Amino acid sequence: MARISVLDDDVSLEEPTLVEGFPGVGLVGKIATDHMIEAHEMDHYANVHCDGLPRVAVYREDNPAVTTPVRLYVDTERDLVALRSDVPVKPGAATEVAGCLESWFAETATFPVFLSGLGREKGEAPPALYGLATGDGGDRLDRVEVEDPPEAGLVSGPTGAMLAEALERGRDAVGLVVESDPQFPDPEAARILIREGIDPIAGTETDTDGLVDQAEEIREAKQEFAERMQRATEESSQAEPLKMFQ
């Protein structure tokens, strides 16, 4: 049964901003979301039980308790929610997962910020960041001066399905697309996501120096995960150019 199982009913949220961290190209969304959870010492708020998510149990070092692979974390002071995912979502399940989460967004008046990587070979210039929007989400992009995409494209995977769900329901939402390493975890791109996109939109201040300083450590820690994602790239959330004749 699809549901969001809240662990603490005393937690009060007003109109929270949610940062989505499903894994995708460069693992940028996951790295950015995981970093924000740690940097702001966010509390484990809810377990996500959605049809289509793998039926697996996750455990942590020095802790015997198991949890769901997709969880919500909260910072009530900043009115911030983060979705942390330890698993990819299969293409056939993306629509079910998006519908499950959309119901919770509607109940809690949540403003979602969806994150995606656009595969680009690394160059000397910092990764570029582009904004997408549904409903009145474009107003927030205008206020924080996130650039429009320079070419047509599409967003796939669970992130794309959630954007499509928001579009269908007329929900205000933002999508952030950052140029990312197409083969390896990209903490530099995740840092751009936070510094130039998430923080301005959510009104937060996140120390991101550690993302670059510890880039090699993050790369090693995520390497096995990235290799699994490369073997099944169709399961990833990603943005890509849309080729067509005009």
Score class of each variant (00 low, 15 high):
G123V: 04
F105D: 07
A98F: 07
D136I: 02
L141N: 03
A93N: 12
E145Y: 07
K122P: 00
T95L: 14
G160I: 04
R140M: 11
P127W: 04
G92T: 07
L163F: 10
L141A: 14
G153A: 07
S103F: 04
E107L: 12
V113N: 08
P149D: 02
G160C: 13
G137D: 01
G99S: 08
E96Y: 11
E102P: 00
S85V: 09
G170E: 01
E147C: 03
R143Q: 14
E168M: 08
L115W: 03
L141E: 01
L129R: 11
G119V: 00
W104C: 05
A109N: 15
T108W: 10
S103M: 12
M162Q: 15
R169A: 03
S156L: 10
Y130D: 02
P158A: 12
L129Y: 01
A161H: 05
E165W: 00
R169T: 10
S103A: 14
M162I: 09
G153S: 10
V146W: 01
P150Q: 10
V89P: 07
E107T: 06
D86V: 06
P91N: 08
G99N: 15
P158F: 11
P158S: 05
S103P: 01
D148S: 12
E107Y: 09
E124A: 02
G123F: 05
A98R: 01
A125T: 11
G175C: 02
P112A: 00
P149Y: 03
L154C: 10
A93V: 10
C100V: 08
V174P: 01
A98H: 03
W104P: 03
A125M: 08
D172R: 12
V87L: 07
A166Y: 01
E121R: 14
P149Q: 00
P112F: 00
E151K: 14
L132F: 09
E168I: 05
E96P: 01
Y130V: 03
A128S: 14
V97M: 06
E124S: 14
